[in-house]
């Protein structure tokens, strides 16, 4: 056991809360904002979303086309690498499964890795297996209202089972790739995969 911090008692959570908190996390009722730079503002008239295959084939949707795809609502706990977790967040968006099946008609075929690219230049990488099978969405509504820009609106990737930096704000493209390539934080000392339950915060964490 690590050395005891003399006199530290801490704030104990209920058993229910504790069981939902990955190691090193604490619950917040707020919704903190973390971004590396200014919040980009993209007009919905010029916004589009692309799903690009490794073969170069691309499916593309305008805002109206995108939001007309079959929507899903999902309620998830989210976990930020800066230690806060927030329970029961409610999102509405398009499942990545839906995007892949729509894109298949345009000749986009699956590849094992995905790089999300965003307005403002942010990128993040995830294995395809972590954004398929009902595990990820491109979300544009939060708590029943349009997603605010500082939280990633018009639309952000939502991959709630990984640390929240993987849920890229202001996402505009998912690029399917044959080999893995680190994104923004993954190139700056953060873990390549980022499983909160294994506390994979930083490069080198097992």
């Amino acid at each position: 056991m690590p050395p005891v911090s003399r006199g530290f008692r801490g704030r104990r959570q209920s058993a229910d809360t504790a069981s939902r908190l990955p190691p090193g996390q604490y619950e917040t009722r707020d919704f903190p904002v973390l971004s590396a730079g200014p919040t980009p503002r993209t007009s919905l008239t010029t916004w589009d979303f692309a799903l690009r295959g490794a073969n170069g084939q691309t499916a593309r949707w305008t805002w109206d086309e995108f939001t007309a795809l079959p929507r899903q609502t999902t309620t998830k706990d989210i976990h930020c690498v800066t230690k806060w977790s927030k329970f029961d967040t409610v999102w509405e968006g398009i499942s990545v499964d839906t995007l892949l099946s729509e894109a298949a008609a345009k000749g986009v075929v699956p590849s094992p890795f995905v790089l999300a690219t965003c307005d403002g230049g942010y990128t993040t990488n995830v294995p395809l297996a972590d954004v398929t099978g009902g595990k990820a969405w491109v979300a544009f509504m939060y708590n029943g209202a349009p997603l605010p820009a500082e939280h990633g609106g018009p639309a952000r990737l939502l991959v709630p089972h990984l640390y929240f930096w993987k849920s890229a704000k202001w996402v505009r493209e998912l690029r399917l790739m044959e080999s893995d390539a680190p994104g923004f934080w993954e190139s700056l000392g953060y873990h390549n995969y980022g499983d909160p339950w294994r506390e994979q915060r930083y490069s080198g964490d097992e």
Partner: peptide, 11 residues
Amino acid sequence: RLTADDGYQAE
């Protein structure tokens, strides 16, 4: 990281 005497931790 702080550790209480019963092993509870906060980061």
